[in-house]
Amino acid sequence: MNVVLVGLGRIGKLVARRLLLQDDPGLNWVGAVEKTRDPELFSYLLNYDSTYGKLDRRVEHTTDSLTVQGSSDVPLFDDLALAIEETSPDLVVDCSGSQRSAEILLSLDRTRSTRHLFAQALDVVKRDNDSKVWVYGINDSDFERRKIPRFIINPGCLNNCLIPLISCLNEQHRITKGSFVSVHSITNTQPGLDKAQRSPRWSRASKSNLVPAAHDSMGLVAHFFPELKGKLVGRTVRAPVDHTSYVTCNFEIKERTDTDSVLRCLTSTKIIPTVFGVDQEPLVSSDYLTDSRSCVVDGTSIRVVDGSTVLVSAWYNNEHAFACRMVDIANQISRAS
């Protein structure tokens, strides 16, 4: 399956690295789209990363392409429509988070067989009748052969963590309401030093502050658990670390339980271990630098208050693990096509 990658920012870069290093031959990277069309710069940024280190496979460049030993050249475009016209991809993986690129993809000729995977639940995509949210490891059966829609949404790192956790607990303990606070690592959307941005708090230096931030997880959680619509609320706080986030949840449950029962529930889940796990060691964020799981429950955090309130926390690498899910979904689309 031929793949065009849109956006070589933090997520796009990690998706590209994953494509270059994976053993699965089903995905063939045939093009990339970036508004800054500079192959020399992006070959450098693919080879070296301040957080994840040096790439194990060398990327070179020509005047208009990225080149990888043993692979075909990957042309770099600054025009999305032109990239699709010249490469005829089977799948466009959009990691840009751009409303404009989503609008372009939605407007393209619908007689094409090209499918589109978005790394963000943009409203313009969610409104399309031929779009569907895919939380890998949870609703994979909805995307079997001949069921894959034209537009697929990977709904974000926090949703990829919360939805498996809620799914697991809800099976045995029936959550009635709850709340969460996510301590989230900084991203490129925040300034390094104070700079006028979209809101007062977002204008403050990311490396010097804890920054309360808005979030949009509740709508998609309710999409998977309609009975919890309006009964879950959450907050996020951006913290000055380069990677990995930590969400703490407080759930009210219908059936009385205890700490051991909750732990057994979480460790005996049928959710695939590449997506969900439980760690019972006292680990910290740096221990999850290259952890590819969407949700890793902190087993030391589990508490039950008065038999009906469950407190539980989980780690998620909001960059690396999320990029892994993008490639997992792309691989499954390839196998189902």
Rank of each mutant, 00 (worst) to 15 (best):
Q197L: 02
Q197E: 00
R198V: 08
R198F: 06
R198A: 07
R201I: 15
R201M: 15
W202D: 08
S203I: 01
R204N: 05
R204L: 09
R204A: 07
R204G: 05
R204W: 03
S206W: 00
S208N: 12
S208E: 13
N209G: 03
N209A: 02
L210W: 08
L210Y: 10
V211Y: 12
D216I: 11
S217Q: 12
S217W: 04
M218Y: 10
M218W: 06
G219Y: 06
G219P: 08
L220N: 04
V221Y: 02
V221N: 00
A222V: 05
H223E: 15
F224V: 02
P226V: 10
E227L: 13
E227K: 10
E227M: 09
L228E: 07
L228R: 07
L228P: 03
K229Y: 07
G230D: 05
G230W: 02
G230T: 01
K231H: 12
V233G: 12
G234W: 07
R235T: 04
R235S: 13
T236E: 13
T236I: 14
R238K: 14
A239R: 02
A239Q: 10
V241I: 11
V241N: 00
V241Y: 02
D242G: 11
H243G: 01
H243E: 06
S245Y: 02
S245R: 02
Y246T: 00
T248L: 05
T248M: 05
T248K: 06
C249M: 11
C249R: 02
F251H: 10
E252I: 13
E252D: 13
E252V: 11
I253Q: 04
I253D: 09
I253F: 06
K254W: 11
R256C: 10
R256M: 15
D258Q: 12
D258N: 15
T259F: 12
T259H: 11
D260V: 13
S261K: 15
S261M: 13
S261N: 14
S261I: 10
V262R: 08
V262Y: 00
L263P: 08
L263M: 13
R264H: 14
R264G: 10
C265V: 13
L266R: 09
T267P: 06
T267E: 14
